[in-house]
């Protein structure tokens, strides 16, 4: 049976899925470790919606999920929420390990910083996330896709810069990105403790519910599609 909603992506899917189920939605989730997404090897697949270039077990999981939902993850039948394309915990710490920053202000303020140009950051993101961006662009043409920007759990300057840049690059491609932290009450803040999961680095069901509420109310997520 076709679900009301498909949630696909990394570990940040959990909060959304829990909230969707709690709200009585027939939501189906397909989640992979951020490491798999970070490999930048997931690409479009006509029948399943996506496939891994190099991970057979992942493809087995995707095909099973495809059977569960009765077709492609990305189809015009069901809206899709995606936590895909960011996976900042795998990318930013190594990037900034030696003091690299894409912020001119940070570079001026620190004697240890190495400034990295915007052109380099874009090329770096293309190398690290290009396949995922193309997957999302492809999916966007086939379904009602909303990419959900990940929660801000630590006010780390470089992480914020990468998060914002990825959001901008996706929006430049016409992809709908919903960033809960652009709303006034969360803007410029870390995820409040009451909205965090026990592990401290993911949102909890209340956070997921807040995101879904805002998506429905403010962004017109259409479950009837």
């Amino acid at each position: 049976m076709k679900p009301d909603l498909i949630i696909v992506g990394d570990s940040h899917c959990g909060a959304l899925q829990s909230a969707a189920l709690a709200a009585g939605l027939k939501s189906e989730m397909f989640s992979l470790s951020g490491n798999h997404w970070h490999e930048n090897q997931i690409r479009p697949h006509k029948r399943w919606g996506m496939m891994s270039k190099n991970r057979r077990p992942v493809n087995v999981s995707i095909s099973k999920f495809s059977e569960t939902i009765g077709g492609s993850i990305f189809s015009d039948q069901t809206p899709v929420l995606a936590s895909i394309g960011y996976h900042l915990g795998r990318m930013v710490p190594p990037f900034s390990r030696a003091g690299h920053t894409s912020s001119i202000e940070q570079a001026i303020d620190s004697d240890e910083a190495f400034y990295v140009s915007d052109a380099f950051v874009d090329a770096f993101l293309e190398a690290k996330r290009g396949q995922l961006f193309r997957l999302l662009k492809w999916a966007h043409k086939r379904c009602d896709l909303t990419v959900i920007a990940p929660p801000i759990v630590k006010d780390h300057a470089e992480t914020m810069l990468f998060r914002d840049r990825i959001t901008a690059l996706l929006r430049d491609e016409g992809i709908n990105v919903f960033d809960p932290f652009e709303d006034a009450d969360l803007s410029g803040r870390e995820l409040p403790a009451k909205l965090r999961a026990e592990d401290g680095v993911h949102g909890n069901v209340d956070y997921g519910a807040m995101v879904l509420r805002r998506l429905f109310a403010e962004n017109g997520l259409n479950l009837a599609a």
Partner: peptide, 24 residues
């Protein structure tokens, strides 16, 4: 320093994988 970063990222990976399992 490299080893510490790797360890920290490995720990985060475990947290994320546990979060995925828990969400099911």
């Amino acid at each position: 320093a490299d080893a510490a970063l790797e360890q920290s990222m490995a720990e985060e990976t475990i947290v994320c994988e546990e979060a995925i399992l828990e969400s099911y």
